[in-house]
Amino acid sequence: MANIVSGFLVPHDPIMFVAPDAPEKNIADKAWGAYETCAARLADLDVDTVIIIGNDHYMLFGTTCLPQYCIATGDVDGPLDQLPGLKRQSIPNNEELATFIAAHGHANGFDWAVARSFTTDHSFSIPFQKIVQRASELKGKEIQAIPVYLASAVDPYLSMERSQQLGLAISRAVNAFEGNNKVAVIGSGGISHWVGTKESGKVNEVFDRKVIEYCLSLNEAAIMSLSDEQILAEGGNGAMELRNFVCTMASVQADTSELIEYQPVPEWVTGLGFIELKKN
């Protein structure tokens, strides 16, 4: 039986790559160091597959089709939006497990959209390259990665409730998979950030710390109790990505958690939180 053994909640901030020197060096070092810490811990977990739960930023899915949730079951590369230090590359997908998760969902009330070929954006590729690929280097062993994309940035948004249900469905599917895979799940997103709006650059540390507390206490329900209006007002349109956190937390069902790092970085337009979800 395959098993989800751990999870991480991390940001996917492209401004870190575009303007790496914008914040003070000690702040930047802490943020980059947090990715390295996540990578080292992932390497120690000896997983073979990571599911990364991210979201499109209205570049992969156009107006002709906006899936509520999508899993890449075949060939994967990316990111489409290359950045300095984040080049487009082929990505080793665990096609067998991804296909099984989709099929298991289809048989159990989850109508996954599937991508038989898929190009990621930065929401997948930042955690993939900075954590998964780095862990592969540290371990000397390839770790495969499955992209899951939720409608967290383009409306109609996936509901919080469905995000949680989908996370639980992923967990059940992994457990039903006939393999000995050790799997980790990374929730990629937020916390507070305003993307393309006049408030861009604002960071709401109070909101961020509230969300972090909810995550550390493994209280998905508290995150789910935040209305979209409240999230948009207090955390910005970027914080709608909390759906990715809820889905991840539901899939991992962690026993404990640890805050690896939090930095509110207006220069990088985001409250950057790094949390590990641990299982006994």
């Binding site: 401004i15 914008a22 006049k198 861009s200 650059g201 604002k202 207006p266 220069e267």
Partner: peptide, 15 residues
């Protein structure tokens, strides 16, 4: 940001 009517308070990253 100016065209959006931003007051510039939150533009620390813009060089």
């Amino acid at each position: 940001n100016q065209k959006l009517g931003s007051d510039g308070v939150h533009s620390a990253s813009i060089k």
